[in-house]
Nucleic acid binder design. Structure first.
Length: 543
DNA sequence: AAGATATTCAACCGCAGCCAG
DNA sequence: CCTGGCTGCGGTTGAATATCT
């Protein structure tokens, strides 16, 4: 068989054989009929005979001059193919086998520093090839994305974050003062990384403010104002739903929002959701900054091609929906300026592949301040929803509704955090960040949503054996429900329709359909007896 | 057990940089 | 300076394999 033009011919070849890779030389000779000649070059899997020829040639002549291999060795392979085969499989110094934990950690570190510079990363990992690393990374982030986990553990994130943007100087960024090529790779996939980063930050913020069992009944306005005043939230508001789901249709910005949301927010144009909307002006989705003075600058300062969405890439599927590349965190910070954890309260992650064990900040995040400012379309609708909700019943609401200012809640035990994080809860990672401090979600929440564990991808480990304790977790946030792929019709909930409708309004039916329905049963939240006691935090969400 | 779906990984492709002529 | 060849890099593909239903 002969490969012509496309990847492979229709004939049987090594690739279709059960033992491809150890084929006899005769396969090549017969099928190619051009060994050593100038005929069409073979493609596809290498045979052991070809390997032997290549190894022999390189042994004699050394690496390089790959195009000469075909001429002199008789291999019907192009120089590129020879180089690749040698570099990825035949080099004597190659390590075989799976990456060690150490190597994995190194890869994560390197990727945080370099982005998708596989060759450079490979240079730092003796015996490993760029292809190997690339494949590993792509596999890894796919897994983590599925699990709703951040790509980078914060201990890795925080280093470059702290190093590169200690002052969170967004104005500097907005003025385009980030020029270092490593900080500003021309990379279309910056934001997803930021999302994951922010996702993690938001989780911390959320958990700081709302210990499980104490999820608040927060007025929409509070969340709105919080989102607008809280530096963390301000920079962490990108929805973390998979972009392809988040973005309905082909609108470049927040397409799914256009009609439904605009219609849902009457009486103002401040937050008009259309394709020309500036991200920074969205109370819900502003991921960057809410300072009106800098909104425009920051939005416009985004590097060209830095983000498909921002670029108005209107392809049916956002390119970053399918391209998992995550750039250097330096880039992330340089571009978006997510705050890093307090140096005094380092986030300690022990990562073993998918498992993150994170210790909480041991001091209040003073960034969680409320500002009385702002209102708008969202709030109007949210208030309306709130009113409806309140008119139905207060019984399912948590009696204690801490505000974001409630720093007394913030004392946590590391072990509790660790346990929480160890569950790999999509809530933990995704919930806060999807709307990240915006208020929309809060509008719809009413009570407790115990969710079946099995719904969550098997990624969760039971924190607490007590079913009762589990049931204390309030899944009040539709963003959580979405992000965790466990959206439920929320049976028995007074607001069941509100939640689903709102989500559909925001994301479109496709997303709602995408979200796996979980047979959730509403249960009144169990009031914590230690709202201000960290011991209450061992009531962990179980999804 | 069989089919469907997901995952892995080797290999290809196109592009860009370098360099010699 | 231009051109063409070589090399390396990063993205993508798709067969093989594993896992799920």
């Amino acid at each position: 068989m002969v490969y012509i033009g496309d990847r492979m011919s229709t004939e049987s070849d090594e690739r279709t054989k059960p033992n491809s890779g150890v084929d006899s030389p005769s396969v090549d000779d017969v099928t190619e009929g051009n060994v050593g000649g100038n005929g069409p070059l073979k493609k596809g899997p290498w045979t052991s005979a070809e390997d032997a020829i290549l190894v022999e040639y390189v042994t004699k002549n050394g690496e390089g001059n790959w195009n000469a291999v075909q001429k002199h060795s008789g291999l019907a392979r192009c120089g590129k193919s020879c180089r690749l085969r040698w570099a990825n499989h035949l080099r004597p110094d190659l390590k075989k086998g799976a990456f060690t934990a150490e190597e994995e950690h190194r890869i994560i570190e390197l990727h945080a520093q370099m982005g998708n510079k596989w060759a450079r990363m490979a240079a730092e990992l003796p015996g490993r090839t760029d292809n190997e690393i690339k494949n590993y990374w792509n596999t890894r982030i796919k897994r983590r994305q599925r699990a709703g986990l951040p790509i980078y553990p914060p201990d890795i994130c925080s280093q470059p974050l702290n190093d590169n943007l200690q002052s969170d100087d967004m104005s500097n960024l907005s003025s385009g003062n980030v020029h270092h090529p490593e900080l500003m790779p021309n990379n279309n996939f910056d934001i997803p990384a930021v999302e994951f980063k922010n996702l993690e930050l938001n989780r911390h913020i959320f958990m700081l403010n709302f210990p499980p069992g104490n999820l608040p009944d927060i007025p929409a306005s509070s969340l709105l104002t919080q989102s607008l005043s809280n530096p963390y939230h301000n920079k962490s508001l990108l929805p973390t739903v998979h972009p392809s789901k988040r973005l309905c249709g082909s609108e470049p910005m927040f397409p799914g929002l256009n009609a439904p949301i605009c219609n849902a927010f009457p009486g103002g144009n401040q937050y008009h959701f259309d394709s020309s909307m500036q991200i920074g002006k969205s109370p819900v989705f502003s991921a960057y900054d809410h300072n009106p003075a800098t909104d425009n600058a920051r939005t416009s300062s985004l590097p060209n091609g830095s983000h498909a969405v921002l670029n108005g890439n209107s392809s049916s599927e956002p390119s970053w929906a399918t391209k998992p590349e995550l750039p250097s965190l330096q880039t992330q910070m340089g571009t978006w300026g997510s705050p890093s954890p307090s140096p005094s309260s380092p986030l300690r992650y022990l990562e073993s592949d998918e498992n993150l064990i994170q210790s909480p900040p041991n001091e209040p995040m003073n960034s969680c301040n409320l500002s009385p400012q702002n209102s708008g379309l969202l709030e109007a609708v949210l208030s309306e929803s709130e009113t409806i909700r309140n008119s139905k019943s207060n019984s399912v609401n948590t009696p204690h509704a801490p505000t974001f200012m409630d720093d007394s809640l913030h004392t946590l035990h590391e072990t509790e955090w660790g346990a929480y994080d160890n569950q790999l809860s999509p809530l933990g990672h995704s919930s806060p960040s999807m709307f990240s401090g915006n208020s929309l979600d809060e509008t719809f929440h009413t009570g407790t949503f115990p969710v079946k564990e099995e719904a969550i991808n098997g990624a969760l480990l039971p924190y607490d054996d007590s079913i009762e304790a589990r049931n204390q977790m309030i899944f009040s946030r539709p963003d959580f429900l979405l992000a965790s792929n466990c959206f439920s019709p929320v049976k028995h909930q007074t607001n069941e329709h509100t939640v689903k409708d709102a989500i559909e309004a925001f994301y479109g039916d496709d997303l709602s359909k995408d979200c796996k329905i979980v047979d959730a049963v509403a249960t009144p939240s169990t009031p914590s007896h230690h709202d201000h006691d960290s011991s209450a935090w061992n009531v962990m969400p179980t999804i």
